[in-house]
Amino acid sequence: MKSRLSVITALLSGLIFGFGLMLAGMANPAKVLAFLDITALWDPSLALVMGGAIAVGFMAFKIAGKRTSSVLGLPMNIPTLRAIDKNLVLGALIFGIGWGLAGICPAPAFVLFGTGSIKGIVFLISMLVGMGVFELIESRHK
């Protein structure tokens, strides 16, 4: 029951996330690129998207940090890793290049897929292949 309920709340959370991206303009790659284009006429809207999300998220994690289990009785999976390692920095630098090329990051890729956009589907499949390549390389190093 607990796990069944948690699937519904996860679905709801994903749905609200998707609505948020669409309302914010994050699901529009042209708007994302207009934010990343700081030297031309700059559209700073996406800084406010992050600001709005972080303001709410900050309060949520303040509460979450004090809990030992979730409201549904599930374990709190809050990352504990603190080391700033090569993979973190290198991966983020690489991710930013791809983000700057098309203006699409992982969450909006799924929303674009949902709109039925062929370009969105092509991006999503390529992104999943990229993730698969990472898994392959990682499993070989172990």
Partner: peptide, 26 residues
């Protein structure tokens, strides 16, 4: 092209989604 209100509101929704997932599902 600056859309501060929809950006803030959309961001707020993303924050609510984040809050739901961490508080309910951990």
């Amino acid at each position: 092209h600056f859309t501060p209100w929809s950006a803030l509101a959309g961001g707020g929704l993303i924050g609510i989604s984040v809050a739901l997932l961490i508080l309910l599902n951990g």
